[in-house]
């Protein structure tokens, strides 16, 4: 298949998937212009696009975007390291999971946002508490998915290797870890989207920068178009992060590609 053909097909695919989005944008444009909703509270997409353009020309959008991205990246990095490490540990020693299960389930079910005031009390309003908030929100899906991936490694694969005299460490490195990889990546992707949610909340409390701050600040100053510009930027951040993680995932688990698409 030639290069242009592949990209052509990708664009066509994007076109099909974008139908819903285009319809939504049209509706959004029409609503304030035709007076269905009060245009003071809802700017049409064209106005939002203009606000985006003006914001970036004034050099404000870029820094806000970057600082949010940086916070998300830092939080996700730490939660990935910690979540994968402890998830493997707990999944490998099943007994441990028995003791910790109820604790973890309660933490997971509790909204991460409920812990924000606690972190602010403990760590103040600075960068540290923001990173911890993001870390906390994304830790649980990563930890629990890693744990279940390690636990669900097919026992017959392990028995087959053991019958040939494989050591514990060999089985762990060459069988349990690769078997768990798909679930670990699912956890990281889930964690990534929790990060993007958490960063908004973190930046709405005592921050002076970031997209969350931009949204709240423009709302407070009645700069409605800029508020929507901030929201749209957050969506872009989330989509970008997700597709980056997705690309990373398919690189590591390429053997599953044709299972997923059913060949």
């Amino acid at each position: 298949m030639n290069w242009r053909g592949r990209w052509g097909r990708r664009l066509a695919g994007l076109g099909v998937r974008g139908v819903g989005l285009l319809l939504f944008l049209a509706l959004w444009e029409a609503a304030p212009r035709l007076g269905w909703v009060n245009s003071t509270y809802m700017s049409p997409p064209t106005a939002v696009a203009r606000a985006l353009y003006l914001l970036s020309r004034r050099g404000e959008l870029g820094p806000h975007f970057l600082i949010s991205l940086q916070r998300v990246a830092a939080g996700l990095l730490v939660s990935t390291l910690a979540g994968v490490f402890f998830g493997i540990f707990i999944g490998y020693f099943r007994r441990l999971e028995l003791y910790l299960d109820l604790l973890f389930q309660s933490f997971r079910q509790m909204s991460a946002f409920a812990h924000f005031p606690v972190f602010i009390l403990l760590f103040g309003l600075g960068e540290l508490s923001k990173t911890i908030i993001i870390f906390w929100a994304s830790l649980w899906p990563i930890l629990l998915n890693t744990c279940s991936g390690v636990k669900n490694a097919d026992p017959v694969l392990i028995r087959s290797a053991r019958s040939m005299g494989a050591s514990r460490s060999f089985i762990f490195r060459k069988i349990i870890l690769p078997a768990a990889a798909p679930e670990i990546f699912t956890g990281i992707r889930l964690g990534g989207s929790y990060c993007v949610m958490a960063v908004v909340a973190a930046e709405m409390i005592g921050a002076t920068s970031g997209l969350g701050y931009l949204v709240l600040y423009s709302q407070e100053t009645f700069n409605v178009a800029e508020m929507y510009a901030g929201i749209v930027s957050l969506a872009v951040l989330g989509l970008g992060l997700n597709s980056a993680l997705h690309a990373c995932e398919s690189r590591f688990t390429s053997w599953r590609r044709d299972i997923r698409t059913g060949e």
């Binding site: 694969l157 087959s160 019958s163 040939m164 005299g165 069988i175 990889a181 053997w255 599953r256």
Partner: peptide
């Protein structure tokens, strides 16, 4: 319990799907 002298074949193949 540990030996490099045995090998077992299972009904369910036990092939590593990622290899």
């Amino acid at each position: 319990k540990h030996s490099f002298d045995r090998g077992m074949v299972f009904q369910s193949y036990a092939l590593l799907p990622w290899r």
